[in-house]
């Protein structure tokens, strides 16, 4: 461990690589995290199938490459079809459990995760897949740091997508309805908002965002039918750290998580890279608890 820290101190240029890699991948975590925050905040459903939705999106890019097309083109069909898939899942499953207690919705979404995993396994087989973007890889700092164009592009696309979603939430009728419903569903219903439609739209939008994130993931990392779980956990860490309805918080938490993973992989070894995610979750929860207990004392 000390050796690795010394390496970073002796050749600081490698910090640049770690931070860049962390930021690029963190941007994609932010997408899945924001989708989860949306569903959690508006519908109070904790979607355990979040990672599976991401992986599903990834297979759109894979199918694109199989058809001989560029995987980036998958962004549009992935977004559209996953939107439809999300709507369907809401109508068939989520709408039945949304009024029930927390445990029922956890079970339902966990079941959904299993069905998606096995469905993908049946459709595409258990092999690890990637989608090759074929884009330029640039070397900077004398070759010590490499930046793949696809990573930069995916960062830009993440930013654009997040921006569009924010604009949509702020200015469109549906966006306003979603925000109203999340504040008080009963009042929203009284005001004539079709909350059922709002819920379906919210879940569908989340699936679409995840689908887009999956397309980007498949061009940077690798995908496999059973790889959803770590993505779900990451999304939960990001949302728990940032809090619901806090988009800047989600972005900062996701980018921070990406960088933290890279550093722990470098300093502690790859075996700690994913463990870091879970450890951070514990720390965040402890810190929140501490903060809340302080607040309570102030009230007293």
């Amino acid at each position: 461990m000390w050796d690795n820290i010394m390496v970073l101190a002796a050749a600081p240029v490698f910090n640049v690589q770690l931070i860049l890699d962390g930021l690029f991948i963190g941007a994609i975590f932010a997408l899945a995290g924001y989708g989860l925050a949306l569903v959690w905040g508006v519908m109070n459903v904790k979607n355990l199938a979040q990672g599976e939705l991401v992986i599903m999106g990834g297979y759109f890019a894979y199918v694109m490459t199989q058809l001989g097309l560029h995987p980036l083109l998958a962004l549009i069909p992935a977004f559209a079809i996953m939107f439809g898939f999300g709507w369907l899942v809401y109508k068939i499953i989520i709408s039945k459990v949304i009024e029930r207690d927390l445990f029922t919705s956890l079970l339902a979404t966990f079941g959904l995760a299993l069905v998606i995993q096995q469905g993908l396994n049946l459709a595409f087989g258990p092999e690890v897949q990637t989608a090759q973007s074929g884009m330029e890889i640039r070397s900077i700092f004398g070759g010590n740091v490499t930046v793949a164009d696809i990573r930069v592009l995916s960062l830009i696309l993440c930013a654009i997508l997040a921006g569009l979603v924010v604009l949509f939430m702020k200015h469109s009728r549906m966006g306003q309805a979603i925000r109203a419903t999340s504040q008080d569903p009963r009042a929203a219903r009284v005001m004539g908002i079709d909350t059922e439609k709002v819920y379906a739209f919210t879940f569908a939008l989340n699936a679409a965002i995840c689908g887009a994130a999956g397309v980007l993931i498949s061009m940077i990392w690798v995908i496999q039918p059973f790889y959803g779980v770590p993505h779900s956990i990451r999304a939960f860490v990001v949302v728990t750290a940032a809090g619901l309805g806090n988009l800047p918080g989600v972005i900062i938490a996701a980018l921070g998580l990406g960088v933290a993973e890279q550093y722990s992989g470098f300093v502690l070894g790859a075996e700690f890279q994913q463990a870091t995610v879970v450890m951070l979750l514990i720390f965040v929860l402890m810190w929140r608890q501490f903060q809340m207990s302080k607040n309570r004392q102030v009230v007293q």
């Binding site: 490698f14 995908i223 790859a270």
Partner: peptide
Amino acid sequence: IDDKLPRDLNDMSATLTKTKAL
């Protein structure tokens, strides 16, 4: 370098950065 990769492995860039350095 003697890293253990996790079971659901999909990123080893940190290990490779170390490889580059050493």
